[in-house]
């Protein structure tokens, strides 16, 4: 069986900026594959190239065996897309948006109606089906876009930050449905996300930074990059703590805005020793490594630590705020 997605040296420039820089990966048919990376890493650009909306500057890619440049219409027939930014018509009702989509994808009307029913029910929008989308909250719009993307049962589903700003309950509902689709119809899923728990669901994850894939493995494989436990320490003098830890325990830590991170094989016994040796410690936490730690280890930065992360936080706050008014 051919791979669902193949990318060879995929590159896209915007003037002088290299947004995607020689990316290589394959996604097997029926796989759930995730892209994890900070703002501006090139996730959306990659998805747009794969979905035939942007041409690569160089390199090539196939989706469902079709070339994304030369066989664009075959690719479009095979894929479903949920964009990062809104793409609904808010002067139409929820139902009208869904039926519009079904006509574009040639879904027979009878199937369209039953699937629409099922999907709207799933995301709890059945009672709002006849309402104009402009009266919806941000979270409701997101849920509607997700079910619209599933209406035509694509072989390969692209989800660009699918659950940004949704409450945990809706998120898990949506994941359940995606997994059901995936199990029953063998849908391949390519997604980008900021939520670590969602990345954990993926069969494999590519970590992307500055347009390059810096690691690609299963979630557990990636975590093996981080040696053992993670000990997180809050102190008033981070530099002094780093120096002391290097000297006494031969451990080099990583910094972000607030905390110092150490990796150690034996976290439980390391903590008392550390506290004894260094008096100026305000707070200590111990946990299993997460993908966040993997990112920190590989790049020396926290994934949300990059300037525009604030914008993202704002986006989340806005949708949360809108949902409250609902």
């Amino acid at each position: 069986m051919t791979n669902a997605i193949e990318a060879f040296e995929l590159t896209r420039n915007f003037k002088d900026l290299v947004a995607v820089n020689g990316v290589n990966f394959t996604v097997g048919a029926g796989e759930i594959f995730g892209f994890l990376g900070p703002n501006g890493a090139g996730k959306t650009t990659t998805i747009k190239i794969l979905a035939t909306l942007l041409r690569p500057t160089s390199g090539r890619a196939t989706v469902s065996g079709y070339d994304v440049v030369r066989q664009a219409s075959n690719v479009r027939r095979a894929i479903g897309m949920v964009f990062q930014d809104q793409s609904l018509d808010d002067r139409l009702t929820a139902e009208e948006n869904m039926l519009f989509h079904c006509v574009l994808y040639g879904v027979p009307r009878k199937d369209a109606l039953t699937r629409m029913e099922e999907l709207l029910d799933l995301v709890g929008l059945s009672i709002r089906r006849k309402d104009l989308v402009k009266t919806f909250s941000g979270g409701m719009k997101r849920r509607l876009e997700l079910c619209r993307g599933l209406l035509h049962r694509p072989a390969v589903l692209f989800l660009d930050e699918p659950t940004l700003g949704l409450d945990p309950q809706t998120r898990s509902h949506i994941w359940e449905y995606i997994r059901t689709l995936h199990r029953e119809l063998g849908t391949t899923v390519f997604l980008t996300t900021h939520y670590m728990e969602e990345a954990e669901v993926c069969d494999r994850i590519g970590i992307i930074d500055h347009g390059k894939i810096i690691a690609l493995d299963s979630p557990s494989g990636l975590k093996r990059v981080v040696g053992g436990d993670v000990v997180i320490v809050k102190t008033s003098d981070k530099e002094a703590l780093l120096a002391a830890a290097r000297e006494r325990f031969n451990l080099s830590g990583q910094l972000d805005d607030e905390m110092v991170y150490f990796e150690t094989e034996r976290g439980e016994s390391f903590i008392p020793e550390l506290v004894k040796a260094i008096p100026d410690i305000l707070e200590v936490r111990l946990r299993q490594p997460t993908l966040e730690d993997v990112f920190l280890k590989l790049t020396g930065r926290a994934i949300r630590d990059t300037g525009s992360g604030k914008l993202d936080a704002m986006r989340i706050r806005r949708t949360v705020h809108q949902r409250r008014r609902q």
Partner: peptide, 9 residues
Amino acid sequence: FLKEVLVAP
């Protein structure tokens, strides 16, 4: 909204 149409077959 145009993206929704541009990505369709």
